[in-house]
């Protein structure tokens, strides 16, 4: 898992701003999204991110895993991250 070319991330008070500069698309995410993005920036796999989030947050494993998967799917759909074969 890696960030697509032209994608820049900056931390803000509210979470993170994600800027896809080629298409000039600006997205914002909350604190949880910011944590996930930090792992994606480092090239961590979805499984690795889910394990870390489960450890870090006070929430049911199933809920965390589903939310992380859904979030990553949205990032892929918006061409912000890639798993190398989605597009």
């Amino acid at each position: 898992m890696f960030l697509c070319e032209h994608v820049k991330i900056r931390d803000e008070k509210f979470g993170s701003v994600i800027f896809e500069t080629l298409r000039e698309k600006v997205y914002v995410t909350n604190e949880t999204g910011k944590d996930i993005l930090a792992f994606l920036k480092e090239g961590v796999s979805t499984e690795g991110i889910m394990a870390s989030m489960v450890n870090k947050y006070n929430e049911d494993r199933m809920v965390v895993e589903k939310d992380v998967k859904d979030f990553i799917a949205i990032l892929i759909k918006n061409r912000l991250v890639s798993d190398g074969h989605s597009f």
């Binding site: 698309k25 995410t29 949880t32 006070n58 494993r61 939310d67 992380v68 918006n78």
Partner: peptide, 25 residues
């Protein structure tokens, strides 16, 4: 499966704010 002393989980969100914060090229 519930842990203590950890951060509260909030569903991660993604919102497109392009039109609000970025002028058209």
């Amino acid at each position: 499966n519930k842990k203590v002393n950890t951060k509260e989980w909030k569903k991660p969100t993604l919102e497109d704010v392009s039109e609000k914060v970025m002028a058209q090229p």
